[in-house]
Amino acid sequence: MAIEDATSVIQHRKEDIYTKVNQAMTTVTSQTGQDTPRAYGLTNFAGMNQRDLALFDGAVDTYRGDIQEIINKMENQMDAIRQAFRGNNLVARVSVFITAIKDLLNAYVATIEQEKILVEDANQNWEAAQRKIAENATTDAEAIRTAAQGVTLS
């Protein structure tokens, strides 16, 4: 397979990942009956409190930084390869390879950030649903109390 073909394959895989993310962003009917953004098919979504969400965000940010570090390390390693191939026409091939790999990993980094945002959105929707349920519970309790007060024992 030629490098150009490989680049095409990588591009296709990137698009596949983007498609997957876009699919994950389709809407579903939430517990409140409203259409809300969906994070990765998160049915039965059990949310996090604000403290845990912050810890979750931090963990994802750390992971994203880890991947960025891999990209940076790879770039340094590839610089050495460029030097090793300096002066011959393999440099062009290696450069295409470097660019394709970096594009792929950078796309992945962007995907990670997207995933974090999706979870944050889903968590907000979960909190809204919880509030709605709590409001309904309060209303129901009031109705029961009022009804109970109307009951007389003969």
Partner: peptide, 24 residues
């Protein structure tokens, strides 16, 4: 690094959705 992330997620988020997130 993914193992580190999954361990961190396990500490703050449990349930079906968390498992789906990790699987994805």
């Amino acid at each position: 690094k993914a193992i580190n992330l999954f361990n961190a997620v396990d500490e703050v988020w449990r349930g079906v959705s968390a498992e789906k997130f990790k699987a994805n």
